[in-house]
Design a protein around this nucleic acid. Structure first.
Lengths: 197, 197
DNA sequence: GTCTATAGCCAGATAGAC
DNA sequence: GTCTATCTGGCTATAGAC
């Protein structure tokens, strides 16, 4: 592993845990097992290091999501595949959703730059398809964006609010993970069940 | 309004927008229209000011939630009332969910102190009731905690991930608010529909 | 490329006048 | 109680040796 990779991975861990404002360059250096000066040598400054981490996070997630959104499957199949593959991915990267959400809320300017990114998650094809399947009588009448919001909510929220959820529902790490495994299939079933004609 | 109240309200605004690490005492002072030294005079230091804001946020939310969770209504009625009143409250305080979630994730020690707080949201009575209604054949068989997680997800997520949701679904502030108004009733209908026998 | 040492700045906190 | 001025520490960033 190159020094640059060691720094990048350390930065990913620290930024995802503490956020941009809470992260310390020293902590990243310690995590990487190298000197603080190297961070600046490799990535110029904190902001650029952060942007590299943030954009990488996005470019890991967005293509998978878009591949599902833009495939030629039915809406029901897309819902099933999205929840399944999103949860599988995020179980391996449990800090990712909270990280992305937090930084988008704290730095609204960032939202704009990400909106223009070609790799942004784009549900437009799915939304059009939902309208079509409603017209065809496959799905009951509803607002397509509400449905997309429901799918995202059920899938992403437990990870985004992980600490709060564990606290309120009194879940151990193992119990939480077991519930998420179960949700890989249960969410899609429930949503499909409530929208199919 | 007393000086202390002016500071507290300013702190609420700045902390909720920037988080603990991102907030600046100077910005809070400016927002309150008073001098930075007064913050320390009134609240000793940043940490204590933050804790006051955080605990106040919780003690606004938790009692309402618990009142619903512990009432003698049916599960369906509780779901209806919870979603309705939670969304109504949060529309007036749109930064609150993200604030609470972010700080609980960034400061896991905080989670513990909040868990012991008498005012913490406690869904135990609701969970027992769900088990009973399953046994009585009112609700289809499911894991009660999954149902509670579904309710929280559908209700809280759009606010917690507000910027991301607006970005991905391309929603203006007005469109977002309109969708949330609609969700006051649609979420409960959908959930009840998918779990009733 | 990798380190040590340090510059320079900024934010939290305090001293002290009024 | 409210202000101005200032201290102190910590953090980003750089200079410079090797």
């Amino acid at each position: 592993m190159t020094t640059e990779e060691k720094i990048f991975n350390a930065a990913r861990i620290v930024f995802q845990k503490k956020g941009f404002a809470g992260a310390r360059m020293q902590e990243i250096a310690d995590e990487a097992g190298i000197n603080k000066a190297m961070l600046h040598y490799c990535f110029k400054n904190k902001q650029l290091l952060f942007e590299a981490v943030f954009m990488k996070a996005f470019s890991q997630l967005a293509p998978q999501i878009n591949a599902i959104f833009n495939s030629d499957e039915s809406v029901f199949e897309k819902i099933t595949r999205f929840t399944q593959s999103y949860i599988s991915f995020v179980i391996e990267n449990p800090y990712l959703p909270q990280f992305i959400i937090q930084e988008m809320n704290n730095n609204p300017e960032f939202v704009m730059s990400f909106l223009n990114h070609e790799n942004r998650p784009n549900p437009n094809a799915l939304i059009t398809q939902i309208e079509r399947e409603i017209a065809e009588g496959i799905i009951i009448p509803l607002h397509p964006k509400q449905l997309v919001m429901d799918i995202m909510s059920m899938t992403i929220f437990p990870f985004a609010a992980q600490m709060m959820v564990k606290g309120i529902l009194q879940l151990s790490d193992e119990e939480f993970k077991k519930m998420m495994e179960e949700r890989k299939t249960s969410i899609a079933n429930q949503i499909i069940n409530s929208i199919k004609r």
